[in-house]
Write a protein that binds this DNA or RNA. Structure first.
Length: 464
RNA sequence: UCCACAGUAGCUCAGCGGUAGAGCAAUCGGCUGUUAACCGAUCGGUCGUAGGUUCGAUCCCUACCUGUGGAGCCA
């Protein structure tokens, strides 16, 4: 690779380069030319903004340059100068331009706004658009912020398995993993399949959560987190669901529900603040073109204390709300989207934790409260997105846990290892799962999960 | 999976029971430091697919496909 300068450096540290000859490699975002000179804007992927390059007919290949198609790749050598009276802060006066690769004239991204729907059909090229340049850089920075947050707090990063044998983690439909040649199975009933001859010797699936495995690490390291892909085979056709998404799942030993909520709130604020500080250009773009209340809302979120209500209190709020709900509000029901939206968007108008749900509507591993009716669960609801975090304090009392598992008809032998975690030095512990893409939607204002994933996987769609 | 809406040029859209139009893009030319540059010309479509009604369908009807929005399920 040649010794080139990143556009990011020019914008962040431009004074260092003034009046020096530099080289920049990138893709032509726009180009316009007259008889004897022209301008191109170059984007090298290192920064949201473009660098303007001025070229004129002292270049031997001036004709070729002025006819370049959009998205051609070039390396520009020239002097970096300030342009205080122009729209752009500085530019490069080209002394030499090498064409790396021309682009075809039918390049599908034009110099105008495209619909997000159209851009989804060219997901392999959309990272070159302003919108997705911003989205995927923020995604990268958000991931880094999460790792940094947990490392600063002394958490150990854990890699839990993608393939699992546990068929009933209770978090949704699972994708089956097999080496069986399904086409050769013919019309054989699934019940006749002999899984002892399959790759793992038993039914296997893609994970819907790393939590149970994560607990194993937490009860050795104290504080751990996982950050990896997760798979749900639910036939969910909404703007908030994908079949493959990334989840962040911290797990803490010697921690209760209160500690859990504090961690979740601190983490969300940390990540949002980090992104706003690190990606001001991208956030400004989202604020202008995606959601004009974005920055105000995020500034509010990082400076406010999240709401906290019990499920029972939430039911009372909804019952007294001057609003007609499609689904009647009854204690014991699961909160519907309209209820969650009312709580987060109208009643609290900020992120809110709802805790202590009826045990019937929550997973087996959540800790039973003293009332015998509710469990120490927590959902964090945010305006516009809904549930962004779901978590709980875990049931550490073996007798209660096994009772609960039997009630739900789980096979205790499959979970023997999980029960061992209680058998050998039980401790209270808690954790949660953060939907990474939902966080990105919240931070960018983008309302469709397909637009925060490079190549989204949804029911009926597996392109690219 | 259910409900609703939509599918017309590469993109964004208009149109109408009598076989199609704009802006942008593309191509060619012009051009005085432009910045979604500008000006002129040219090119561009079996109107999602398959049936049906009709003298005649892009337009009306039915089914299907695809997309979008909402709901369920959840992160």
């Amino acid at each position: 690779m040649k010794s080139t300068t990143f556009v990011r450096e020019l914008f962040r540290n431009g004074h260092v380069f003034i009046n020096q000859t530099i080289a920049v490699s990138g893709w032509v975002r726009t180009i316009r030319s007259s008889k004897t000179f022209g301008f191109m804007e170059l984007n090298d992927g290192s920064f949201f903004k473009n660098i303007q390059v001025v070229f004129d007919d002292i270049l031997p290949n001036f004709k070729e340059i002025s006819k370049l198609n959009i998205s051609s790749s070039v390396t520009v050598y020239g002097k970096f100068i300030e342009t205080p009276n122009a729209k752009q802060p500085f530019e490069i006066r080209a002394e030499n331009i090498e064409v790396e690769g021309n682009s075809a004239p039918d390049y599908p991204l034009q110099k105008k706004r495209h619909s997000l729907e159209y851009l989804r059909t060219i997901a392999h090229l959309r990272p070159r658009s302003n919108m997705f340049s911003a989205v995927f850089r923020v995604r990268s920075v958000a991931a880094y912020a999460i790792h940094q947050f947990f490392f600063e707090k002394g958490f150990v990063s854990a890699h839990t398995p993608i393939i699992t044998g546990s068929d009933c983690e209770g978090a949704g439909e699972m994708f089956r993993v097999t080496t069986f040649d399904l086409e050769k199975l013919g019309k054989k009933e699934v019940s006749q399949l002999d899984y002892t001859t399959d790759f793992f010797g038993c039914p296997a699936s893609l994970t819907v959560s790393g939590q149970l495995n994560g607990e194993s690490l937490a009860l050795a390291f104290g504080k751990i987190y996982t950050f990896g892909p997760t798979f749900r085979a639910e036939n969910s056709n909404t703007a908030r669901h994908a079949a493959e998404f990334w989840m962040v799942e911290p797990e803490m030993a010697f921690a209760d529900l209160q500690d859990n909520m504090e961690l979740a709130e601190e983490m969300l604020k940390y990540v949002i603040r980090y992104i706003m500080e690190t990606c001001p250009e991208e956030m400004e773009f989202f604020h202008r073109f995606v959601d004009t209340s974005l920055l105000d809302r995020l500034n509010h979120v990082v400076s406010t204390t999240f709401g906290k209500v019990t499920y029972t209190e939430a039911i009372a709020i909804l019952t007294h709300a001057k609003k007609e709900f499609e689904f009647p509000v009854v204690w014991g029901m699961d909160l519907q989207t309209e209820h969650e939206r009312y709580l987060a968007e109208e009643h609290f108008q900020k992120p809110v934790f709802v805790i202590d749900y009826p045990k019937e509507i929550k997973a087996f591993y959540m800790r039973l409260n003293d009332d015998g009716k509710t469990v120490a669960a927590m959902d964090c609801l945010v305006p516009g997105i809904g549930e962004i975090i779901g978590g709980s304090q875990r049931e550490e009392r073996t007798n209660i846990l096994t009772l609960r598992m039997k009630e739900l008809g789980l096979d205790l032998s499959e979970y023997a290892w999980y029960l061992d975690l209680r058998k050998y030095g039980e401790t209270k512990h808690a954790g949660f799962g953060l939907g990474f893409e939902r966080l990105l939607m919240y931070v960018t204002g983008i309302t469709n999960i397909r637009d925060v994933i490079l190549f989204p996987r949804t029911p009926g769609t597996l392109r690219f």
